[in-house]
C-alpha cells in the first residue's frame, strides 16, 4: 500500500500482532522485552518508536509509545527497554514468552545517522538510554567513534552497560556514587565536553536533562539531537494530542515531527 497521496515525509507504519519471545527484569521496575517483529525490525531506524497495547479490554485505553531499544534484523527481533511508571507499563511487565501484543510502528522521526562519520557523544539519563543502543550500533557500523554516557540515581538504574560497551567507550555517573562518577548525568556530560571535542551529541532523557543538554550544545557549539518523551494517543500525527513548543512558537507534534528534534528546534517548557 504505502500510499502517501502526494504528501511527503509520511512514514509507513504498520499494525502487527507480535509474539513475546522473552521478558527480563533488569532491576526493580526496569524490563527488557523481546518481541518477534520481523517487519518492524526491518523497517525501524534509531530513535523511532512503536505504540504498544498495554491492557486487556478497554483498560489502559491508549497505547504506550515505546522507543526501539535494539533490533536484530536476522532474527526478526525487536527489543524494548522500559520502566514501569503506571498501570499500563505494569501490565506490560507481566507479559511472558508466547503472549501476543498488538503494536503500531515504526513511528516518528528518529536520530540522524546518515551524515559523515565523526565523533559522537551519546547522553542517556535513566531509562532514556533505551533508544541509544540501537543508535550506537547503527553509528558504530557507520564508523563513528562514540562515547556513551549513562546516568542514574544509583547502580541499579545503569541499564545494560555491557551492551553499550560493544559500540563505544561507556562512562557512568550515579547520584549516590554507587558506580562511576558521583554526580548527575549533566555533571558527567559537562566534564566530558570540558576534556574532549565532539561532532555531534545525541540524547534522550527527562526534560531537565534535555534542557541541560540543550544548554551544553549551545555553549560548546556542538549540534545536538534530543528525544522527547510525551503521552500520545494516535502516534501517527492525526490527533495532535502530543505537542511541544517549537522555537518559532508554534506547536510541533512529538509523534510525527519528533520524537527526536535538533536542540535548536524546540523550547523545552515544564
Amino acid at each position: 500500500m504505502n500510499k502517501n497521496n502526494g504528501v511527503e515525509n509520511v512514514k509507513s507504519p504498520g499494525e502487527f500482532t507480535c509474539r513475546v519471545s522473552e521478558q527480563l527484569s533488569l532491576a526493580p521496575d526496569y524490563y527488557l522485552l523481546s518481541l518477534e517483529a520481523p517487519e518492524l525490525a526491518r523497517a525501524a531506524s534509531p530513535g523511532e518508536f512503536a505504540m504498544l497495547r498495554c491492557g486487556e479490554g478497554y483498560d489502559n485505553f491508549l497505547r504506550r509509545p515505546m522507543s526501539i531499544h535494539q533490533v536484530d534484523r536476522s532474527k526478526g527481533q525487536v527489543d524494548i527497554l522500559y520502566q514501569v511508571r503506571g498501570k499500563g507499563t505494569n501490565w506490560l511487565s507481566k507479559r511472558a514468552s508466547g503472549d501476543l501484543l498488538p503494536l503500531l510502528g515504526p513511528l516518528g522521526h528518529g536520530y540522524t545517522c546518515s551524515g559523515p562519520a565523526g565523533k559522537g557523544l551519546l547522553i542517556g539519563a535513566g531509562v532514556g538510554v533505551a533508544p541509544l543502543l540501537f543508535l550506537a550500533s547503527e553509528l558504530a557500523a557507520r564508523q563513528w567513534k562514540l562515547v556513551i554516557l549513562m546516568g542514574a540515581r544509583s547502580k541499579a538504574g545503569i541499564l545494560r552497560p555491557d551492551a553499550y560497551m560493544e559500540y563505544g567507550e561507556v562512562k557512568t555517573a550515579t547520584e549516590d556514587g554507587s558506580v562511576g562518577m558521583q554526580g548527575t548525568i549533566l555533571d558527567l556530560a559537562a566534564n566530558e565536553l570540558e576534556n574532549s571535542t565532539f561532532d555531534m551529541i545525541f540524547s534522550c532523557g527527562s526534560l531537565p536533562v534535555l534542557r541541560g543538554v540543550q544548554e551544553l550544545s549551545r555553549q560548546k557549539g556542538i549540534p545536538a539531537e534530543l528525544s522527547l518523551d510525551e503521552r500520545m494517543a494516535c502516534g501517527v500525527g492525526a490527533c495532535v494530542g502530543c505537542v511541544c513548543q517549537g522555537a518559532d512558537g508554534s506547536y510541533l507534534k512529538v509523534c510525527q515531527d519528533g520524537p527526536v528534534f535538533s536542540a535548536g528546534e524546540v523550547i523545552l517548557n515544564d
Binding site: 504505502n2 502517501n4 509520511v10 507504519p13 500525527g237 492525526a238
Partner: peptide, 10 residues
C-alpha cells in the same frame, strides 16, 4: 483521523 494519509500504510 488527521487527513487519513497518516493511516494510509496501516
Amino acid at each position: 483521523f488527521g487527513s487519513g494519509v497518516e493511516y494510509a500504510s496501516v
